[in-house]
Amino acid sequence: MTEYKLVVVGAGGVGKSALTIQLIQNHFVDEYDPTIEDSYRKQVVIDGETCLLDILDTAGQEEYSAMRDQYMRTGEGFLCVFAINNTKSFEDIHHYREQIKRVKDSEDVPMVLVGNKCDLPSRTVDTKQAQDLARSYGIPFIETSAKTRQGVDDAFYTLVREIRKHKEKMSKDGKKKKKKSKTKCVIM
């Protein structure tokens, strides 16, 4: 069974824990209790493949930012979460993405942009803004509501699919490099 290491990042209060708990335990946590770091595991079937999701729910508070490099190193894919009623959390996505790329030393890291709290009427981040940002990053965008469960499975499952595509691409690139290195030079 394939294991996928997913990391949920975003500013404090955007609903990272609520999304994760909704996926794992099928219930909505409405009281806000700032996370330092929590880890969850769940076995699911995605596109006919049974897999184990190892999900790291991270601290959004700035005082825990020193811990970010460590979990970013171990993560295979990242859910970059903002709240649709919090423009600052949307603007912060850029910083999370840049930090992930720096730590992973790669421009090509599996990510999904997630606009959470889409059940709320007080939207300050337009869907088109988020779609445009995701398009500019070359990553999928999904709106979710941890409260109603809308888009929750889709967000995590899409990230797994992005990781699969990335692994497939990397193995193809690896095979191309191996083929090239088999060419021999004969000096007579």
Rank of each mutant, 00 (worst) to 15 (best):
K165G: 08
K178P: 10
K169L: 08
V125A: 03
I163G: 00
I139G: 02
M188S: 14
L159G: 00
E162M: 07
K182F: 02
K169C: 09
V152C: 09
C185S: 14
S136Y: 04
V160M: 08
Q129P: 09
L133S: 04
D132V: 03
M188G: 15
T183L: 00
V160G: 03
K178L: 08
Y137W: 14
T158H: 14
T144H: 01
Y157P: 04
T144F: 02
R149V: 10
L159Y: 00
K177D: 14
R135N: 09
L133C: 05
A134M: 03
I139L: 10
H166T: 11
E143I: 03
A134W: 07
K169E: 09
V160R: 02
Y157F: 11
K167D: 10
E168S: 11
F156H: 01
K177W: 04
K165E: 11
I139T: 03
K165A: 10
K178M: 07
A130G: 06
R161L: 01
D154I: 05
D154L: 09
I139D: 02
V125L: 10
K167A: 07
L159P: 00
C185L: 11
K176V: 01
L159H: 00
C185G: 15
A134Y: 08
K175S: 12
C185Q: 15
S145G: 11
G174I: 09
Y157E: 14
S145L: 02
D154R: 08
A155R: 00
V160I: 10
K147E: 13
H166F: 09
L133F: 13
D132A: 06
I142A: 06
G138Q: 02
G138R: 02
K182L: 04
K172T: 15
Q131L: 07
D173C: 01
K184P: 10
K169V: 07
Y157Q: 13
Q131V: 08
D153H: 10
I142K: 02
V160E: 02
L133E: 06
R135E: 09
K167C: 03
K176T: 15
E162H: 03
F141H: 01
Y137N: 08
A155L: 07
K177I: 06
S136R: 08
R135D: 14
A146S: 00
R135A: 13
F141N: 03
Y157D: 12
G174P: 11
Y157M: 14
L159E: 00
K178T: 14
D173I: 03
R149P: 13
H166A: 08
Y137T: 07
V186I: 07
G174L: 13
F141G: 01
M188Y: 04
E168R: 04
T183R: 11
R164P: 00
V152E: 07
D132C: 04
R164C: 09
K128W: 04
R135V: 08
F156D: 00
E162Y: 02
K184G: 13
I139K: 01
E162R: 03
E162D: 02
A155E: 00
T127S: 13
K177C: 12
A146L: 02
K165C: 04
V152Q: 09
A134I: 02
D126Y: 14
D154N: 10
I163R: 00
Q150A: 11
G174W: 00
R164L: 12
R149A: 14
A155P: 09
V152I: 13
T158L: 09
T144S: 09
D126P: 02
P140G: 01
K176P: 14
F156Q: 00
Q131S: 09
K177L: 06
K165W: 00
V152R: 07
V152N: 07
A134D: 04
K167R: 08
R164E: 15
S136L: 10
V125S: 09
F156M: 10
R135Q: 09
I163W: 01
Y157I: 15
K180L: 10
S181A: 09
D132W: 02
L159Q: 00
Q150P: 14
K178D: 15
K184W: 00
A134S: 05
K177R: 07
Q131W: 04
H166Q: 09
R135P: 02
Q131P: 05
K165P: 00
K167G: 03
K167P: 02
G151F: 09
T183M: 04
D132S: 05
T158R: 05
F156N: 00
Y157C: 13
G174V: 07
Y137A: 11
K176C: 11
V160K: 04
G138E: 05
A155C: 08
R164K: 15
I139R: 01
A134V: 03
D173F: 05
R161S: 12
T127G: 08
D173K: 04
K167L: 01
V125C: 05
V152S: 07
V152T: 09
Y137V: 12
A134L: 04
E162I: 02
S145E: 15
I139Y: 03
D126C: 10
F156T: 01
D173R: 02
D154F: 05
D126T: 06
A130R: 04
S136H: 11
S145I: 07
L159T: 00
V160W: 04
E162N: 04
D126F: 15
K128S: 11
K128A: 06
D173T: 08
M188F: 01
S145N: 14
R149C: 15
T127H: 10
T127L: 13
D173V: 02
D126W: 08
G151H: 08
K128H: 06
K176A: 13
S145C: 12
D154S: 09
V186A: 15
G151A: 06
T183A: 15
H166P: 01
G174C: 02
K175R: 10
Q129L: 09
H166L: 10
K128V: 06
R161Y: 05
S145R: 11
D132R: 03
L159F: 00
F156S: 00
T144P: 02
T127Y: 15
K178H: 11
A134P: 02
A155Q: 01
K169S: 10
K169A: 09
V186P: 14
A130D: 04
D173A: 04
R164Q: 15
V160L: 07
R149Q: 06
R164V: 13
K175V: 03
D126H: 05
D126N: 14
D153P: 08
K180V: 12
R135F: 03
M170A: 03
K180G: 14
I187E: 15
E143R: 02
K167S: 07
D153S: 12
D126L: 08
T127A: 08
K177G: 08
D132I: 03
V186G: 14
S181R: 11
D126Q: 07
T158N: 06
A134Q: 01
S181T: 14
G151S: 11
Q129K: 10
